[in-house]
Nucleic acid binder design. Structure first.
Lengths: 346, 346
DNA sequence: CTCACCCATGCAAGCGCTTACAGCGACTCT
DNA sequence: AGAGTCGCTGTAAGCGCTTGCATGGGTGAG
């Protein structure tokens, strides 16, 4: 049915070897021969069988993209960026999602699925256990992590600590003193550097400003809107005098805003909120945030795996910049500590 | 290095053919033999080479997932649903994104990339031109469309017209008479059934209620937040007496809300807004919407391609239900038509 | 003019599986 | 008892490419 390499070879009057070399731009092919082969191949609508090529060469021209979610802002943007770059370089993207939450025993990511199937692996923002990384590396392919700092792996990420510090300093600069931090669930977050580092940055800023850290101002919950909302609710109960919140992600920040509204508090008049991400929909609630270039990180990581596959030396850590994106969710704290009645449920 | 089928065969004391059959659960393999092979394979950590298997069998156990975007709500959720189902059935997902906007000449989706690489194709919410569909079909693989009604292709989608009608009727029921519709750009939308059908449903409801259709109340723009915002802005200029808006997507509805705020109008006191989707973040702005099950549609579509590959007869059209999700962006129209000063820029 | 070398090409041996077909005991049926 | 069946297993021929090695016609140096 479909034309094979032999058909092209016959039609072009050369051997299959020459067709193979001509079409892949290998050296040692006469220019005119190459042209002729190209023309003939195009006429016949020839496209090489990836399976056959992989089997013969051992290369798949495919990258495995592992991500716990794809419908969250950071993840979908990273994937979009990576996919575009990989495709531009003629690489396919094999998508693997899995439940990022299940932290129970047993690997959540099964390395065997990728065996002999990809030339490289991209792991997006996922707190992998060391043994999972090991098994992935056991495949013998380059591996690049995005958004978290694997175990000495090649990584693209932001400076979480400095970013968190900058966010907190923004609040301090506005005059806030009771600044809470909302982040992921404590046990979930243990191995996952971004939340840990962001919490550290928050503390750094507080300590540097001579404010000191009140442990009651740290709230843990799911790393999403609902989690942020629940954390904020709990926070208001524990520390009703809080005037500002630094959330470790925009989605949690949005949840926090929702909880504040639920409590009848105004943002930013009563409580200021700042997040991290630069979520597209942050504008809906005027969210001030530390914006990070998600799609760029995907693209950079893609270029890194490609380089590693090509044997080009690559930097071990790529840190992308974040910038304060001021909107309307942060403002100076209210003059008086008095607030419209907020009564904890009894 | 890695164990091959021969290693397993040797270790198990059988032929490679038996190993192949045993591991793939083919019939005509003695139960104890199968067990032994399985054990040995596990011990050796044997995983069949997908390339070799594909080359020999002609099947790839891979599905191509074509989507114009992955970072938009509907798309990422569909992809997530499809990926999960496909993986559960042992299929890989090859992700292809491309610029959905570029409607200029020339195919935006290159069928050749998928040649001999997949067993089936999923096209997510994409207004493909007929020739693009043809070339995809030319690959000889099952194809199913999600969220739009290909050209007689197998499709999973909602009843756009009825959904739009229900949304509009909700507004009418609240007492609105000046009900606008915000949808995609006119030329972009021409071949794309959901926007067309949603506009038709909007008209249906208006006509059925004896209100009649004012063409000035139809606004076109990009199918995203920015587009919805621009459309709403234009709409306010053209028809300042509008009291309700039905947007063809939640993202556009959110944009509309932003534009209304920009204009100093309150939602829902001055203007009601309803969307379509059930976007996760709709709650941020209290968006009332016609919710659709996006991830389920992905899963259903996945099951359909799988069935088609297996030769199981499949329904040509699968229609998923939508439901009115009432939040706080819709309310009866203001008593008086008078409004806080809205002065069109001169 | 000859030899070494280089460039362009062809030959053919795989790559690691799947599967049509053949083989071979052990039964069943007549 | 002989022939046909059936269940299980093995043999071997590919699947459609890539690539190491061989070949052979130029080319420049000696």
């Amino acid at each position: 049915m479909a034309a094979g390499i032999d058909d092209v070879a016959r039609a072009a009057g050369v051997s299959t070897a020459t067709v193979s070399r001509a079409l892949r731009d290998l050296p040692n092919v006469n220019k005119t021969t190459r042209e002729r082969v190209r023309t003939v191949a195009a006429q016949l609508g020839y496209v090489a069988s990836p399976s056959a090529a992989s089997l013969a060469s051992g290369r798949t021209r495919t990258i495995g993209l592992i991500s716990p979610w794809i419908s969250r802002w950071f993840f979908s943007n990273v994937i979009e960026g990576a996919e575009g770059t990989l495709r531009a370089h003629g690489f396919d993207v094999l998508l693997y999602t899995f439940d990022g939450r299940r932290r129970t025993s047993g690997a959540r990511v099964d390395a065997d699925v990728l065996r002999r199937r990809v030339d490289g692996i991209l792991v997006v923002g996922l707190p992998l256990a060391e043994e999972e990384v090991e098994s992935l590396l056991g495949l013998g392919h380059p591996l690049v992590c995005i958004g978290w700092g694997g175990f000495g792996q090649v990584t693209v990420r932001l400076d979480d600590r400095a970013t968190a510090r900058a966010a907190t300093e923004h609040l301090i600069g506005l005059g806030h003193r009771r600044i809470a931090h909302i982040t992921g669930a404590a046990d979930d977050v243990a191995l996952w550097s971004p939340p840990v580092d962001r919490a550290a940055g928050w503390r750094d800023a507080l300590v540097a400003a001579g404010i000191g850290v009140d442990p009651r101002l740290e709230a843990h919950g799911d790393f999403d809107v609902a989690g942020g909302r629940a954390s904020m609710r709990a926070l208001l109960l524990r520390a009703p005098d809080v005037t500002a919140v630094f959330a470790a992600s925009d989605e949690m920040a949005m949840g926090a805003i929702l909880a504040l509204r639920d409590a009848g508090l105004r943002v930013p008049q009563d409580v200021s909120v700042i997040g991290v991400d630069g979520h597209d929909l942050g504008e809906l609630v005027g969210l001030t945030t530390m914006a990070q270039p998600a799609s760029d990180q995907g693209a950079m990581a893609a270029r890194l795996v490609l380089d590693m596959i090509a044997g080009v030396p690559t930097p071990n850590q790529t840190v992308v910049p974040t910038r304060l994106l001021e909107r309307s969710s942060t403002a100076p704290p209210p003059r008086t500590a008095a607030r419209p009645g907020f009564a904890p449920a009894s």
